[in-house]
Structure formats: C-alpha cells, structure tokens
Simulated scan of single mutants.
Amino acid sequence: MQISEIIIGGDTPGIEWRVPVLRFKGSDAKAPSVYIQAALHADELPGTAVSHFLCERLREAEADGDILGDVTIVPQANPIGAAQSHFGELQGRFDLASRTNFNRDFPLVALGERDSLLENLQGQTAVNRLKRTLLHMALGAELVLDLHCDDESVQYAYIDEAFWPEAADLAAALKMEAVFLSDGESTAFEEAVGYAFKRQGGEKLAQVPGRLAVTLELRGRRDVYPQMAKEDADGLWRFLAARGAVRDASVELPRFDGPALPLDNIAMVRALEPGTVLFHKDVGERVEAGDLLATIVTRPGMADGTVEIRAELAGLIATRSSDRSVRRGGDLMKIACGARARSDRKPGTLED
C-alpha cells in the first residue's frame, strides 16, 4: 500500500489541510481502476469505518498478488469540514465560510478536460482546491464510489440512469434495500464524475458500460459499528471481485431484487407545522396510503395541540430525521414509492 498526502493551503496565514491517499497498485492493465472516498460530508463517518476495514482486506490481497486493478482510497476526504466545530457540534455538511454544501458546486468538465481541473489552483479557495483535486483523482478511475450516509436510513444508493442496470451488481453485493435512479443534473461529486464519464468526446452518452459513479448512503449517521462496517467492507470487496478489480473466485453475486426507482417516485414527507415529532413508523418499514407516519405536538397540553402526518402513497420508508424538534416545512422522511410521487421536482438533488 502506497501512502501519500494532498496538501491544501488554507485561506488564512499558517493553515494547511492534509488529505491521506491510500493506493494499491494493480497487476493487470486491463482490469478496471477504482476510486473510493469517504466523509466528503465530514460528519458522515460510516464510510470512513468501512474504508478502514476494506483496506485491511486489500492489504491481504496485495500480499497474495490479488489486486488486479489500481485501487485508490481516500478515507477522510474533507479535513476542512472535520475542523468545523460550532459550540461543540461538528458541522461537516456545509462550508461555514461560503455556506455551500461540501458536496455541491463541483466543476462539470468532459473527461478529456480532466487536467484543466488543476490549472490555476492557487487562485481558488481551499474548498475549491480540495474539490478540484478530489475530482481530478476520481476521473483517473473507471469505478468511482462516494461513501455517504443519511440521517436515519436504510442502505441505499443514488445511481445515474446511465449506469443502470449494470450497477445492479453493486446493489446486490451490498444487499441494498433500495436504489434511487438520479438524473445526473446536479453538481454533486458523483454527478460531476458521471457528467465527465458521459462526455468522453463527442455527444453525451446515454449509457456508459464499464464505468460507474455512485453515491452510497451507508444507513444513518450513527450506524458506525465494527461488525456493520466489516460486513459493508466485505460487500465492497464482492463488488470489486465481480468487476475484476480484485481476484476472488469464490464471489458469486445474487440478483438484486430491491426497488430501483426514479427520483420522482421519492415522496419527501415534510412537517405541516412546527413542534415535537412523535414517529409512528421506522426506517425499513413499508407503509400503505393513509398510514399514520408521525404526530407533531404543536401546542403541548392542548386538546387540539397535535397534527397528524399520513402517507399519501404506499412505499418503503428509506430515511427518517433524527431530530425530534421540527420547523415548519422541515424534512421528516423519504418514502420510496412504486408510483410517481411528485410532478414538480426540479432536475438535480432531492435536498440541499
């Protein structure tokens, strides 16, 4: 395993950020190359734990000569966000200086323009230098996995329709409970990679065989446990073996039989009033139209002091908010529905 560091100079004197990069050299030039990063949202740590155990497996494979394709892993991709503590709480999703989500505003370039990402870096802010450097590394690989997590959540993924259904092997390897088929119209990291992969020279490609850019949501923010992380690392190993990036003849993937749904089928359940949330349903449960999802206590102690939130469509509760105090319009759940849940969604991500 080769270890190096990306050094990002800070925007104030005396500050710099270091990003460790772990590389495993492959022995087969025809095998697919892999890039995996975790904790781009610095307060989302399941992916960091999974990366730790995956590297254990890869070191063993390296010793046995079983690494076929080059594998690059960045276990903690965002030291800038990791340093943002506000009144004792880590604030790793948004850059406090620019108020921008760390997983937005990645440059959209064609694959042949990859090296332009590193031009004139000194004129960029530290966050933009970090984003451009990470994206440049990722575009040197064929299989790109960005490890995230939701708040409270089942395991699912955002996968551009251009990589589906070929990417069903990843869903099967990790035993995902759902796949959200995205439209590739945002500036998130995974979609910036997909943008480049679909523009390899000439017209935009509708399908990109042999390549993949995906955001993996490794359950919820607090789902950081050794056995769970080891099992997910084993799932990633199975995927790498199935794609020929590592050698393991024992791997046989089952067929993925979970739901793979367009983003228009994801019902965003929001609070009608502010107050204290009492959930009646948990993540992973299936609900029918009309089922009671949550009660919001808007006026404690009053006979008419509650508001009920009910499911409009049947589906799988994919995510749930961990916050039990909600503002008006705040997100409560995402429900993956078998039918179209909305017609007003703008292209891009489901939330900021």
Rank of each mutant, 00 (worst) to 15 (best):
A242P: 00
I159N: 07
E217G: 03
V154H: 07
A241L: 10
D169H: 06
M176L: 15
R211D: 12
M176V: 06
Y156N: 05
V154F: 09
V154A: 10
M268H: 09
E161K: 10
C149P: 01
P165A: 15
A260T: 03
A242Y: 03
V214D: 13
A245S: 13
V208Q: 10
P274R: 15
R221C: 13
R255D: 13
V193T: 08
D151N: 08
D169N: 11
R211I: 12
V251W: 01
E185N: 10
A167I: 04
G244I: 09
V251I: 11
L240A: 09
A157R: 03
T215Q: 07
A267K: 06
G184E: 11
V224A: 08
Y156C: 08
G235S: 09
L261I: 14
F189E: 01
L181P: 00
G201E: 06
Y158F: 13
L174M: 13
L216W: 02
A192S: 07
G258S: 11
S250R: 10
H148Q: 09
R270Q: 13
G235P: 01
Y195K: 04
K175I: 11
E203P: 00
L218N: 08
V251H: 02
F256R: 04
D160S: 07
A188F: 04
E185K: 11
G194E: 11
N265A: 11
E273W: 03
S186M: 08
A249K: 06
G220R: 01
W164D: 03
V208D: 12
W164S: 05
A188Q: 06
L174I: 07
A168Q: 12
L212R: 01
I159K: 07
D169S: 14
V154Q: 06
L147N: 01
S182L: 04
E273P: 00
K198Y: 09
A213K: 02
R247P: 00
K175A: 15
S186I: 05
A162T: 09
A241G: 03
L236H: 05
D264P: 00
A178C: 10
L174T: 06
K230P: 01
A213S: 14
E190H: 05
K204N: 11
A241W: 05
L170G: 04
A206E: 15
A173K: 04
D264M: 07
F163G: 02
V251N: 07
L236D: 09
R219E: 15
A168F: 08
P274E: 15
R243D: 13
G244P: 01
Q200C: 03
W237L: 13
P262F: 14
L205V: 02
H148G: 03
L253T: 06
D232H: 02
A245E: 10
D160T: 04
A267D: 14
D160N: 11
G194R: 08
R222N: 13
D183M: 04
R243N: 08
R221I: 15
E217I: 06
R270P: 00
P226Q: 15
L261F: 05
R238L: 14
A162H: 03
A178I: 05
F239R: 02
F163L: 10
S153C: 13
R211M: 14
A171E: 12
E185F: 02
A162E: 07
F163D: 05
A260N: 02
